[in-house]
Amino acid sequence: MNSAKLLLKARDLKVHFPVGNSWLFGQPKQLVKAVDGIDLEVYQGETLGVVGESGCGKSTLARALLRLIEPTGGTLQWCGEDMLAFSRKQLIAQRRNFQMIFQDPAACLNPRMTVAECIAEPLYTHEAQLSRKEIEAQVIQMMNRVGLSASHRNRYPHEFSGGQCQRVGIARALILKPQLIICDEPVSALDVSIQAQVINLLKDVQREMNLALVMIAHDLSVVRHISDRVMVMYLGKQMESGTYQAVFDQATHPYTKALLSAVPIADPVASRNRKVQLLLGDLPSPMNPPSGCVFRTRCPEVSEHCANIDPQFSGDISHQIFCNNVQL
């Protein structure tokens, strides 16, 4: 793992959104801490899975990593260069190296453009010197690669199913041969049989192109299927991260254990006999997160000092957790 090239590195990444209209009434502005101090690295050719429940800041993290939302704190490096220092022009030029796949396959395509135009848009933008013939040929090859019939290229997105639209989205992300693709819940809008196809397609192209993937999902079985390393998020913070084996087989953090125990098992006997560890209560408001450890309000292993001190880091590069009570 460590021999591969380091592509993306984030340190203490923060995205805080100001809310409330303080301009008129002079109320103190409140901050929504959507992403609050995330560290991560993405190496060439590997898959990093990011899991967490709805509203924990996964999608914001994805956008912040690509500077689609400006991070409000921390550092972000692309291939060793400070990404936050890129000028607008540099950033646009660099965008060809990192692409994104979106959650809603139909909504991420312009309804007034044919799928060929959608797929070719990155080429128009970054390879303006190509002739129409060359662009068309590349589009056709890419459509064949992602399993779409090239004869359908003059159709419009509304004439495709969700799975086909997601393939168009993947083709669009791949056509510039990027080094990193960030997938923001790429399969959560698809039904299960299509999910597997899309995931396998992503795995195949990853192997072919030596592509790095950041796979954001709330579905653990998807992450388990594709990830090399996993990060578990809760309320904008990192709970546990490490290699796929470490996180899934030796889950240590109480939150990860609760998440894993809630994964459905396709075996009625086994699922009836196991103990599901339900988390009580709701996700606290990110505007007003609990003091100390953000998970303490729902943690089954909470102790009184959790409210006062920040969770302690323990572990090494292959497995790390942030918790006051459990140590690696």
């Binding site: 956008r63 690509l66 689609l68 950033l91 646009i92 030029a93 965008r95 060809r96 692409q99 994104m100 979106f102 959650q103 809603d104 909504a107 991420c108 395509l109 312009n110 309804p111 848009e121 990155p122 933008t125 970054h126 989205g169 669009r172």
Partner: peptide, 17 residues
């Protein structure tokens, strides 16, 4: 705020385009 506009941003399409 629709995703296809966000997708265009992520591709690097200029604002004018």
């Amino acid at each position: 705020n629709r995703e296809f506009i966000e997708a265009a941003h992520s591709i690097g399409v200029s604002h004018w385009k």
